[in-house]
Design a protein around this nucleic acid. Structure first.
Lengths: 235, 235
DNA sequence: TAGTGGTCTAGACCACAAA
DNA sequence: TTGTGGTCTAGACCACTAT
């Protein structure tokens, strides 16, 4: 969705959160929103689609757009994600850098990252915490070709923001594979769990907008602290 | 996305799978597709969006729409899902019905299903198998208000297809929460695992298009046989 | 029957990539 | 500079809900 549509969605969300539609739990009609904001129907529908995807509203044909009841709990979205920091804008997101070094891709990594064997890559291992709660133990690789410089200071913040705003990289899409994994000694120690404990494991391949893979990662999530949600339309 | 757009996407996908674009790994331009199929740009862009969401192609502004390299392995999509049968149209999907009975909602279930305490609900427990491999142990509840009749024969097939085609229910959206769980004795026995083994657990709330919840379920996935994938744009 | 969201078209202009 | 996908508008008609 476009910037304009997201901005409109944010405005409407503020009105929802202010309780403006609490009585009827129904948004203004599309035509009313068109007039209120002076935009086209295309924009209004885009904004509503953003809100619907986020699970905030659901449109009913012939009837209106209804506000969904509040969801409880804190969950990580599984689909989107410009990184964990973007997922929790209001929370204290801290990354403890456990390893940071340039290495060379072995055969297996080269295959996964579609790069040459021995191509230089950053290897970054971090413990990700939200509000001082350990959430995940992440092992990530970044092609040095696209990320020429990195240090502990940058890695302890939002790497995605750095790559986007400072390096000018443009992200395209990600592939995620979710399965079960088990904690090694180091991961367990950092997460405060026991070696051999099970973990939800997400392998993430991130591509630039030109289709080139630039980042692969292996994430082990704390089985108590991390939950995920996903909202989907069934049409 | 609309039916027309999905159909167009299917046609384009057939051409992709036939290797028609293998050389350049690039689709015809939007204008060419408009002409080839005699539809508007709206439709073409919708069809490409469908393919992009499915991870088949990625559009690059100013350049074209590119075919993605083939993915390997069999994974379950985490977002969509008209049920497991729809996810694997080419595979043998079998459900073994372990329990099927009408019960009454206790306080906890009533809260989750937004129904009255003591409201009649079907409780259905099934072992879901794909190609004879046990995938998940599912405990599901359906409001009898919306699903007046059910039997083992129906439950051993696709319940969603039954509800949609035979009962005329119209689905709206689902909420999924993914976290870690552990197998009880019965689930472990059915899945061929050990009691206390870890499992990826997906709790699923399904709503009709009018926003009414009609189905809640608790799914424990076989930690070896079930993997999930998710494709997401990062814009 | 009136009102609302869903689909679709035609056309304009913008942002970006490649030649 | 040209061609591509991205955004946006205006307007038409359809499908469904509510009255």
């Amino acid at each position: 969705m476009t910037v304009k549509q997201r901005e409109l969605a944010a405005k409407i969300l503020h009105r929802i959160e202010a309780g403006e539609f609490a009585e009827t739990s129904r948004l203004p009609t599309e035509d009313q929103l068109i007039e209120q904001y002076g935009v086209s129907r295309y924009c209004v529908r885009g904004a509503i689609a953003v809100l619907a995807e986020a699970g905030e509203v659901f449109p009913v044909r012939g009837s209106g757009v209804f506000v969904r009841e509040e969801r409880n709990g804190i969950y990580m979205p599984i689909s989107t994600s410009y990184g964990i920091a973007a997922d929790f804008p209001d929370r204290k997101v801290v990354s403890k850098v456990c390893e940071l070094a340039v290495t060379r891709a072995d055969e297996q990594l080269a295959k996964r990252m579609r790069c040459d064997v021995d191509a230089p890559v950053w290897r970054v291992v971090r413990l990700r915490c939200v509000d001082d709660l350990p959430i995940s133990y992440e092992t990530a690789w970044y092609l040095k070709e696209y990320v020429p410089f990195l240090n502990e200071d940058i890695a302890s913040g939002s790497l995605y923001r750095y790559m986007r705003d400072d390096l000018g990289l443009r992200f395209g899409f990600t592939d995620k594979v979710i399965h079960m994994g088990w904690l090694g000694a180091e991961a367990a120690r950092r997460l405060g769990l026991e070696e051999g404990d099970p973990a939800i494991c997400i392998e993430d391949d991130a591509f630039l907008s030109n289709g080139r893979l630039f980042n692969a990662s292996y994430n082990l999530y704390h089985y108590k602290n991390a939950k995920f949600y996903s909202m989907a339309s069934m049409r």
